[in-house]
């Protein structure tokens, strides 16, 4: 299958008053057509930055792409004109933001906010068709169309997230960037929203990048997974390959060890020791080195190469170097 989105060796920095924050450091990721990819990583791993870079919506005067490339189909996102980007955003690539509470304009009617996408990308559509389409998409996400004249403050958190999803899907985008769509919601609503997203994704045949820090969600909803750490992808592969827990990056392994197991009798979980590398002052070598049990001098000296341990299963770790004995 051809790649819909291809991010190669992307470096993004945030210039703050105190320091330069290295948010993405050689971030490489590809998403195939129609694929659901889970992007996992802890806070500060660069997940949101990756989504924003793809839409070229990094904060003005602060965020900056230093090097690398982002290709969507055959469009070079970083070189595209402003006009081209306006056409992509919302129509081809949609984003669902993390916090539904603040993601909707508080002074605009919910229906109008959804219709705005249609106004922007389907100028030829008749007003009647637009209204019908808004009703349709609201029904799809489980909101009665009568509520479209209400304002966001009259909706609960889960309902708002449904509106946000409706807004992201109304133009039937080819690629959906879902940035922790369920983090702000409680667990029962989480499952509903995710099931809804999967259903809609299949209906519209969109590809989706599901950003989360919940491995359980990934296992259930995604076909492939990429693990981000300190602004780079340290492991990627299909769900089966990664969740087999046969060959994993030490960081991925650490993440697995943090999941409580119902059958285990261990009195405590095994956390990953230490903290994530400071993005203002990154180590020269592997960014996970200081927390890794398998760290060698080689790891400290240079960034490890990406190793293909099985077809389509990549791990960025010296442990899996060709000729090495594995774990």
């Amino acid at each position: 299958m051809e790649n819909l989105l291809e991010i190669k060796d992307l470096n993004v920095i945030y210039k703050t008053d105190e320091a330069i924050v290295h948010a993405l450091n050689g971030f490489t990721l590809s998403v195939k057509k129609g694929e659901t990819l889970g992007l996992v990583g802890e806070t500060g791993a660069g997940k949101t930055t990756m989504c924003l870079s793809t839409l070229r919506l990094l904060p003005d005067q602060v965020g900056e792409v230093v090097s690398g490339s982002i290709k969507y189909r055959n469009i070079d996102i970083l070189k595209a004109s402003k006009k081209e980007m306006l056409k992509l955003r919302g129509a081809e690539i949609s984003m669902i933001f993390q916090d539904p509470m603040s993601g909707l304009n508080p002074v605009m009617r919910v229906g109008d906010q959804i219709k705005e996408v249609l106004n922007l990308h389907f100028p030829d559509m008749s007003p009647k068709d637009k209204d019908a389409r808004v009703d349709e998409v609201l029904t799809l996400v489980g909101i009665t169309p009568e509520r479209k004249d209400q304002f966001p403050h009259q909706f609960s958190g889960g309902m708002k997230q449904r509106v946000v999803i409706a807004m992201a899907l109304v133009a039937e985008p080819k690629l959906l960037l879902a940035d922790e769509p369920t983090t702000a919601l409680d667990v029962t609503i989480q499952a509903q929203i995710l099931a809804l997203m999967r259903e809609l994704k299949e209906k519209f045949d969109s590809a989706m990048v599901l950003v989360t820090h919940d491995l359980g969600i990934v296992a259930e909803f995604c076909e492939s997974v990429a693990v981000a750490y300190a602004g780079e992808i340290v492991e990627s592969g299909t769900i089966e390959q990664v969740f087999a827990r046969d060959k994993n990056h030490p960081y991925t392994k650490g993440l697995f060890n943090c999941i409580p197991d119902l059958t285990s009798t261990a009195p405590r979980l095994t956390p990953i020791p230490g903290y994530m590398a400071n993005p203002r002052d990154l180590p020269k070598g592997c960014k996970f080195a200081n927390r890794c049990a398998h760290c060698t001098e080689k790891c400290m000296a240079a960034v490890p190469e990406m190793q293909e341990v099985a077809p389509g299963h990549f791990i960025k770790c010296n442990l899996f170097e060709k000729g090495a004995s594995g774990q």
Binding site: G90, A91, S94
Partner: peptide, 8 residues
């Protein structure tokens, strides 16, 4: 940001 992401 949402408004920008819509293509406004």
């Amino acid at each position: 940001r949402t408004a920008r992401a819509k293509g406004n």
